[in-house]
Design a binder for these strands. Structure first.
Lengths: 118, 118
DNA sequence: CGGGATCCTAGGGGATACTG
DNA sequence: CAGTATCCCCTAGGATCCCG
């Protein structure tokens, strides 16, 4: 990750604890789900809304804006009508894959334990 | 994790997606921080409140109760006065270490990038 | 289609006071 | 000390309507 640019963020904005730092960027349920659904590749706004499921467009819009401002997500607008807007992860956003993987693996193991253990 | 007992949870309570399953249990900022601070070992209520920082005792109590109900945290009460209550992670709770580690590593790398890259 | 702009509500969460 | 019990606030987030 050493070559990733992190514009507009001063170290003093960040908590001392690394875990809290991570929470500042993806401490919200919706943010994690956006990450999950963009990890495989680019998606349009509507696709994202569908695949996340249960999110309102207002919230999805605002989360995407936040994540864009944080440098995790890239927004590409195509000048055509009807509008086409595509979202994808930035290189920085993709560095979060290990976190997502850990969550996915734990969830899988937990579900297995629940199914078997009781 | 195959030998962990997960009482009182039916598979139908859980989302299909493993990531969402994980979010159901530790999708909250405070829950992650409780996990972080109990990972090294047992702590008393007051210690926990201090080390987490910025959490009210009402919220801490309720989060600990939830996590206890979810089988992540164990609560041990010592019959003495003044009361002594100790919290620790259950074996199941400890299986979340990889998730916490991933978050910690990402946060560390990110902070380094922010400090250097700009 | 992708979103602004509004309006509105549930409930997460703080502050304070009291108790075993 | 570790809660429980209130009161209260605020804002995350849903629903709707409109617009380029």
């Amino acid at each position: 990750m050493s070559e990733i640019m992190v514009a507009g963020v001063s170290p003093s904005d960040l908590p001392a604890c690394p875990v809290e730092t991570t929470l500042k960027l993806i401490g919200n349920k919706w943010e994690v789900l956006v990450l999950r659904d963009l990890m495989p590749g680019t998606k349009r706004f509507g696709e994202l809304k569908q695949s996340i499921g249960g999110i309102s467009q207002k919230v999805l819009t605002s989360k995407l804006r936040e994540m864009e401002a944080d440098g995790l997500v890239e927004r590409r607008v195509y000048a055509q009508v009807p509008p086409r807007v595509e979202y994808s992860l930035t290189p920085l956003g993709r560095t979060l894959k290990p976190v997502l993987d850990a969550m996915e693996q734990w969830g899988t193991a937990y579900k297995k334990a629940v199914a078997a253990g009781r």
